[in-house]
Design a protein around this nucleic acid. Structure first.
Lengths: 260, 260
DNA sequence: CGCGCCTTTGAAGGAGCTCAATTTAGGTGG
DNA sequence: CCACCTAAATTGAGCTCCTTCAAAGGCGCG
């Protein structure tokens, strides 16, 4: 099935990507072998035996209150973080004060890979709602992935996926107009919520218009106006942070540069 | 030394990055242990013993004529490529025909990491001049990096650096004006040429104005006008693809959002 | 209930785009 | 070696989409 069709533009070129089975995120247990997010996380496809070895991988959990940092640019890099629950943004800052949101991350996704290259983080990770992460000490991940081939492979795929995702955003920022960008954003959110067992058509955005704008290379007013126009055209129903998508095909048409 | 100061904006936040020693790219030998690009490549810091194991890593060489593809989006992913000599661009295509250059790669850099995530390439890699690459079969790289810790670590760093680089470009595309973008581009090129032992102040661009524009999210006319303005202001001397940087500090001032 | 923050909406301005014409460079063949 | 040809680059003028500045409305939280 083409669950990838509404991913970032260039991800749709990715034929072999696995179909993510919607999963249930209710009961929370302790280790990877019991984790409901397994299908989305680093441990995908590991056998029972290997999963046992992994019990040591997740050192601890950390709760991050809404609005606080998981890590900051410049801090020492020691661990990756797998999001158990919640919602994050990452952003980078320029000396002159300008900043840019580089991504929004949700349950099952991995944070912190920017830190590997120079052993210190290059961006900030901030919780947009009360969240919980699994702390994955990086040295442990490296040594375990020397033992467990599947883990190694998954880790590489996760990093590569991040690169592909970034290329999609570069495409978006470099060659799309405002409404195309917002359409891509909404479709991407929709698809990710769906992959986690939530509604693809109705969801709460955790970020402000300004954060969306920063991510999409637009001003908050432009984002707001685009939302309003989508609503006028019957593509979505929007009330503050609550979004209901009424016409997915219509949004896709906009993304594909076609007029309504 | 702050050779990182003129890297992409957010890379300058990266304190721990190694200083790349300028190297001599004249004599070409066969294996990694003899390669002059070692300092820039995956084999950095490996001891003699490990380097011997690596002889098998580079399966073969491939010559790529100017204007031809190293790989195409959609093709099966089987290997990474280390550039021995030459110059490449990568780009992604949208269904509606729009495309975007996602990067320019030069000697010592690794191509193809986009393909890991779904076992097929998601972008095109095209030689901008006659080039030569080392073919690194991916399965071999994975098994060798389970044996050789340093290789594993280097590989992860290379992928992470790609992510950090992409964040820098997202920053550029999302929040810089045309002249800031071009300034960042020139400073980045200058720094990379310097790291390879070439002049930081004078070099030949291998790409057209249109390709630069695509990379920077601008139209070719805008790029051309920005070049002309830089020349009027005495920051650079430009004659077609030949660039001479006259005032690096001035370019940096532009990048930092300050007026002349 | 009131305050602050977020969002919406309007009107004017500007940076970069589009369209178009001209110049220049580089490659080809006589 | 020169004339020719094509692709790339430059430059101008008008236009458009997004930004900027401003004001008002709404929601949530103490």
């Amino acid at each position: 099935m083409d669950q990838t069709a509404d991913a970032w533009p260039c991800e749709s070129l990715c034929v072999a990507q696995k179909t993510v089975v919607p999963i249930n995120i209710n009961s929370l247990r302790t280790a990877c072998s019991q984790c409901n997010l397994r299908e989305l996380c680093l441990t995908y496809g590991l056998n029972e035996q290997d999963l046992e070895k992994l019990e040591s991988l997740v050192g601890s959990r950390r709760r991050i209150r809404r609005g606080t940092h998981l890590y900051r640019a410049g801090e020492n890099f020691e661990a990756l973080y797998a999001i158990r629950s919640g919602f994050f943004k990452t952003d980078v800052l320029l000396e002159d004060g300008r900043d840019q949101v580089t991504g929004f991350q949700m349950a099952g996704e991995i944070l912190g890979m920017d830190g590997i290259s120079c052993e210190s983080h290059t961006c900030n990770a901030i919780a947009l709602e009360d969240s919980e992460v699994c702390v994955i000490p990086y040295s442990l991940l490296e040594s375990l992935s020397r033992e467990i081939e599947t883990l190694q492979h998954n880790f590489h795929k996760v990093m590569s996926r991040e690169i592909v995702r970034d290329h999609g955003i570069m495409m978006l920022l470099g060659s799309m107009r405002a409404e195309e960008r917002l359409s891509a954003f909404l479709l991407n959110m929709s698809q990710r919520f769906q992959a986690r067992g939530y509604s693809e058509a109705e969801f709460h955005l955790r970020m402000t218009r300004e954060e969306i704008g920063s991510y999409l290379g637009l001003k908050l007013e432009t984002v707001s106006r685009a939302f309003s126009r989508f609503q006028e055209e019957g593509l979505i129903a929007v009330q503050q942070k609550h979004i209901r998508i009424l016409d997915i095909a219509g949004l896709k048409r906009i993304l594909n540069h076609q007029a309504i």
